[in-house]
Nucleic acid binder design. Structure first.
Length: 292
DNA sequence: AGACTAACCTGAAAGC
DNA sequence: TGCTTTCAGGTTAGTC
């Protein structure tokens, strides 16, 4: 569910709760394919460590631990990271600086069967939870220097996209342009909402064969992608079905959607009825008049 | 290599 | 009021 903006908003909000605190223990659910690293291994590797950095590449969050190992997190469709816990608010106030009104970032929460990770810290302050109802999310521990095939497959982060790269990639592909935008090995981070939104802004129909994209259109698409992703981050991401920010509040970008999930509604630019069709199993939305 | 599909899950909403 | 079907911000393994 979360795309680049939601993951970036999550990174910024969860950072203060996750970074530089020594991990006392990790509680997990039973083994499942959510765990690329077995839960018992994960618990053992994380105990006693501190996360020094939290970076994002596409939709992946990458924590670097104080022993050089790394923690990979992917939110999948329904994954959510947030801080909270019993009696943690008071303790957090006592242990943290007053930069961000820490209380506002915590959610009153009782772990349930979908809470696959529960991280507790030695400072006894707020816990960090990773909850994911559908289990399409992923967690993986990587030893220091251990390469990650998943990360290696990713293209440059979508905020670093270039028209030249998109144009080069499209030359040999006869799939719809939208399929190329969703391909994480081209640009990492674009998902179903922002692919539709960017193509609308660029005036390109999602079904257009990649090979038929002009250099000018490639530039427009890349510009639209970046503008829309940055704007969505500013507004806290999109809250369409169940995504909420780590502090529990809704993002606001869904209010700025131009086509996604607006089937049958009027195009905000020309008034035509927004169409929906399926491209490679993903529902796609576009304006038949504004997008050619 | 590129293009498709099926599969991994759960829950909400719509259809009957 | 059920029971069934459809749909969902994602990715990967397998087949042609």
């Amino acid at each position: 569910m979360p795309e680049l903006p939601e993951v970036e908003v999550t990174r910024r909000q969860i950072g203060p709760l996750l970074l530089r605190r020594r991990i006392a223990s990790v509680i997990t659910t039973a083994p499942s394919y959510f765990f690329l690293t077995e839960p018992d291994v994960l618990r053992r590797k994380l105990r006693g460590r501190r996360i020094e950095r939290l970076e994002r590449h596409g939709k992946y969050l990458i924590g670097t631990l104080d022993d050089g190992s790394r923690l990979l997190l992917h939110l999948g469709m329904t994954g959510q990271l947030f801080g909270g816990g019993v009696s943690s608010v008071r303790l957090l106030s006592a242990t943290r600086g007053a930069s961000l009104s820490p209380e506002a970032q915590l959610v009153a929460f009782t772990p349930d069967r979908h809470t696959h990770l529960r991280i507790q810290f030695e400072d006894r302050g707020p816990e960090v939870y990773f909850r994911d109802t559908r289990k399409f999310g992923k967690v993986q521990w990587l030893a220091a220097e251990e390469p990650s095939p998943r990360l290696q497959l990713l293209g440059v982060d979508a905020l670093q996209a270039t028209a030249a790269r998109l144009l080069a990639e499209t030359r040999s592909r006869r799939v719809p342009i939208k399929t190329v935008l969703l391909d994480q090995s081209v640009f990492a981070g674009i998902g179903n909402i922002y692919a539709d939104e960017a193509l609308f802004v660029a005036g390109v129909r999602p079904t257009r064969r990649a090979q038929r994209l002009s250099a000018d259109e490639s530039a427009r698409v890349v510009r639209a992608v970046k503008r829309i992703l940055l704007r969505s981050i500013e507004t806290g991401g999109s809250s369409i079905s169940d995504y909420v920010q780590p502090d529990g509040s809704d993002g606001a970008y869904q209010d700025e959607r131009r086509v996604y999930d607006r089937t049958g509604e009027a195009c905000l630019r020309c008034g035509a009825s927004i169409k929906r069709l399926v491209i490679g199993t993903r529902s796609s939305h576009y304006c038949p008049r504004c997008q050619r």
